[in-house]
Write a protein that binds this DNA or RNA. Structure first.
Lengths: 282, 282
DNA sequence: TCGTTATATGAAATTTTATTTCGTGAATTT
DNA sequence: AAATTCACGAAATAAAATTTCATATAACGA
């Protein structure tokens, strides 16, 4: 805890009921305070605005504004004590939601650093670099990552394919061969459609890269190369958003790595494409 | 120097005389800023208050208050070691790339905290909550965010629409009315297709929410509600990946906020849908 | 016990701070 | 040269913080 917060909790036994309500809220939601107004804090703590301004004076801070700035500074230093962001409260305002989303997403991306294996990543980059055709497949939330991958790798000149439709996608698999790569994306690694598609692709000799949770799922076991995403344990309402960030981070890494290695020889085409877009679209 | 100050000094050559006066004062007296008011800074820099508030927007920060808090936080952190992650080296290994991607993405999400305005966010949530129909539109990289939004809001029971095809999408717009919301997504805020579509939607009375860079772009100016994303200045190879993260963070926030507010009354349907998926798909 | 005084609190008024609007003049384009 | 765009500050407005004031309740003394 920061000095200011310590001071508050030390003094708390001399507080009146109203003051205690305020200090409770502050101690439990310290990181939100710098972006709040007296009115908001008053509402949250169920006291009047006047009591809030009086409170900060009581704990020896000149004004509410100073209080906010001081708190922001102190909290910046010691970072990481985030009061249970995993539980979304019914009464949370959109801005609080925003702060939680930011936290959850940053955290998810951080966790990817722990799950993704260096060697597997290198193998994946090699495989894609040498590939003629790339097929991505994912359903539901993972379709977004697949979609994103298509946009990116198409720009690099790859023959890329992805379609949400299982049957259409299936009809394209027989054209794959040993030179091609099939990238399966699934959080759980158990999604039937993805597994089925993967088996067919494998039977045609395509190399299988799985972007899936670090877990002994069917997809994880059967893939040639495993790019593991972390299992982000959280409230079910935000579980999918965090995991999508991890998938995208993996895709981004593949894209940037490939770009870096083969980019030079197609930089003019890349720029040409971008120029066309700018000229025609704005 | 902190990130924010670096950003200011980098941009300083595009500044007008008035803006330069402000940036000079800020760069020379950074530690004083968090405790100053717009009027004080205006007096010190010998400009008007209006110019001060406009200045912070120009450098990509949503409000003067946010600016002060951000600066206070940054200055509290000693010597923020700025390993230059922006420049990708030819010799970088995939794993080094990965670390940079992680850094860039986390950073992009952080910057969104500076650009997104609390009030606009609240207005957006209100608008969407009261809407019957939602239409998302974005092209290129921004299409991913639109796609993602569709998946999310469909789950909440909204009538949602998005299609990459301009002409198809256009044919759907006449069915919009005052009760509906059109969400335009564009980094630059200049994309012709998006602007055209927005104008048509507006003519039918739909409320316009823009998810676009904090900048005086046509889209930014014409929208009813502006959810500003930061201008992530970086290597062109990674610019798009970072900006997409910011868009998704905004979408996530909308989704979680709406869920929280209207979620209860449809929780059973939400779970039912999820159960169907689990039963049929795995 | 009753009246008096001190204390805590919120509502409302006031002051301060931030943002937006509007008009002017300079610069740029047509 | 006319028209348009742009930057800017003054003034209006909106929002946020603080103070004032009235009231209720607790504490105290007769």
């Amino acid at each position: 805890m920061t000095k200011l917060l310590v001071r508050i909790s030390e003094q708390s036994r001399q507080f009146s009921e109203t003051e205690k309500k305020i200090s409770d809220y502050i101690l439990n939601h310290a990181e939100l305070i710098p972006n709040m107004t007296t009115k908001e804090l008053a509402t949250k703590a169920d006291v009047s605005e006047a009591s809030v301004t009086r409170f900060v004076k009581k704990i020896g801070v000149g004004s509410f504004k100073t209080f906010k700035i001081t708190l922001a500074k102190e909290m910046a230093v010691k970072e990481s004590f985030i009061t249970d962001f995993s539980i979304l409260q019914k009464k949370d305002t959109p801005y609080e939601m925003f702060q939680k989303v930011v936290h959850v997403n940053k955290n998810a991306i951080d966790m990817t650093m722990e799950s993704l294996d260096k060697k597997e990543l290198e193998a994946a980059v090699e495989a894609i670099k040498g590939a003629k055709k790339l097929v991505f497949y994912g359903v539901g939330g993972s379709a977004i990552a697949a979609q994103d991958a298509v946009v990116k790798f198409a720009k690099l000149g790859f023959e890329v394919e992805f379609n949400m439709d299982f049957h259409y996608m299936l009809s394209r698999i027989p054209y794959l061969n040993e030179n091609d790569v099939f990238i399966a994306i699934s959080m759980s690694g158990k999604t039937k459609d993805v597994l089925d598609m993967m088996h067919v692709a494998k039977s045609y000799g395509a190399k299988i890269i799985a972007i899936t949770n670090l877990d002994k799922s069917p997809l994880y076991k059967k893939a040639d190369i495993r790019l593991a995403t972390p299992t982000v344990e959280a409230d079910f309402r935000i579980a999918s958003i965090a995991s999508r960030m991890t998938q995208l981070t993996v895709i981004d890494t593949l894209y940037v790595s490939i770009f870096n290695q083969i980019g030079e020889r197609m930089l003019d085409k890349f720029h040409a494409a971008r120029d066309h877009v700018i000229r025609l679209r704005r």
